[in-house]
Design a protein around this nucleic acid. Sequence first.
RNA 1: GUCCCGGUAGCUCAGCCUGGACAGAGCACCUGCCUCCUAAGCAGGGUGUCGCGGGUUCGAAGAUCCGGAAGUCCCGUCCGGGACACCA
Length: 535
Amino acid sequence: MSDPWSSLKSELSSTLSRVLGKNVEVRELPAGSPHGDFCLPCFGLSPDPVSAASDLASSVRAEFVIPISEGPYLNFRIDWEKFAPRLLKAVGPSYGRGNEGKKVMVEFCHANTHKELHIGHVRNLCIGEAVARILEFRGNRVLRANYQGDIGPHVAKCIWGYLNLEFPEPKDPVEKGRLLGKLYTEACKKAPEEEVKRITKALYEGDPETVEVWRKTREWSLEYFDSIYREFGVRFDRLYFESQTAEPGKRIALDLLRRGIAKISDGAVVVDLTEFDLGIVVLVTKEGYPLYPAKELGLAELQFSEGIDRCIHVVASEQNLYFKQVFKIFEMMDPELSAKSHHLSYELVRLKSGKMSSREGNVVTYHDVTEALRKKVEAEYGSESAGKVALAALKYGMLKMDTNTPVSFDLEEATKLKGDTGPYLLYTLVRAKSILEKAGDPGGLEFSDLAPEEIELLRLISRFPSVVKKSAEDLKPHRLARFLFDLSDAFNRFYEKHRVVGSEHEGRRLEIVRCVSTVLETGLGLLGIETVSRM
RNA sequence: GUCCCGGUAGCUCAGCCUGGACAGAGCACCUGCCUCCUAAGCAGGGUGUCGCGGGUUCGAAGAUCCGGAAGUCCCGUCCGGGACACCA
């Protein structure tokens, strides 16, 4: 919970506010800035910002920082010789932790059964897990939830395929998953529409024969997903299925009808949101089937019965309008429900050839990518920890850009192993740990004559807590990912230039390396990236 | 047609929330660097109409005149993607 840098920053801000007689806040300068660590632009302070800055520079006294006026700016340089001991002492496994104390459900993945997991799901999985871990680290109790569509026309198509197509019996979970994916795609091309409707109906009405096939294939799907989740390092605390939200969803929809929130239109149960520019939402079809929005209401009932303070739905941006609609209905039902709900939207993963569609079979699956990656790692560097390195590359690649940035997926781009990649971060950590293993008797700590590369590392280490906090507030893991890259970059420059073991400054350098290693390991952990000890 | 997201180096992307302080990385390409803590590394080499157009924009009692910073804020527009009543 200790965050010396933020404390320093806020102390400095209040000192300045006292001197100036008004509330000001110093701004942090980017870690590599030649101007120092904090600055106060003096433009609004007086008609003459330049002399205001220099007046302030000579009148302000604060511990650990040296004020310097540069033009209209009042800059502050941290006195690292004095500040370093305080900072390094704070760095341990819980450095950067918070105590926010909320109970949060993070709902992500949403893979539909009877289909293959593709790279779009991978982005979702990466974001969801990273956000879950970051929120946990900030002191929240997190429940990971996965809401899966295990019923409906897409399932009916797959069942049609199972009943009408030839296939060899699948042996392991991966084969089972892949087979279902193929059956689905084939059925989309071949299954007659009436047949799909018939099976959908049979499924909803509980026709024993159809249900049996459904049970079996659904089980295959879940085994397949489980094998991937295990490999990926995700475990869900709650699994919700559409088959279980349909009935309560319909019940709630009918209740909304009684309360006058919903109405009948063309025989369907709808909520009219046109006054909010959100169109009309159909809850129950004229045939009496609950649609997705109705099921969402059923799901919310299940979720909020857990007493959660917040529910974060990690769902692609194509559902933006949908979530606005659902949250508006929440608001009409119970404002608190909508206040606690949040849609973490991310842009789609597309292929260069266009949008992926399991219906058309033009998807890049989870196994396509992980296998390509693993093979490449093995070919170039040998098989030692190839699987973990491959996953690191995949996860970091998905997390390093803003959730708002659309991904145009390219296998070549995704299998890069050098530069701004997951393996680079892993490698940096391996190097740092290797130094720590070889360390002799550290000797005393002194911080005189710090090299620029050492100061750079201290600056980055100091900012870790605020980066994590910001990442958590914005629900943007890429901020943390970028930070870890910058840290690695700075560490590798330091590594190249300065000897640690056996050097004159071994004591403090070991301490710095220890902190880099701790921060890197913690940070990678928050991104859901498993580290390795050798590469 | 309406709404949402994107447009920054050849390519992939940061930076925009919180305006000022050189517009930054990585990849790719070229040149160096392993008797020394792991070369998946490091050093050097050069690139930009920040899609386009407009607007707005700090300081003293007031008034007037002059000056007054945009990749970042606002509006418009173009391009790409997505969404928009019985799919999920």
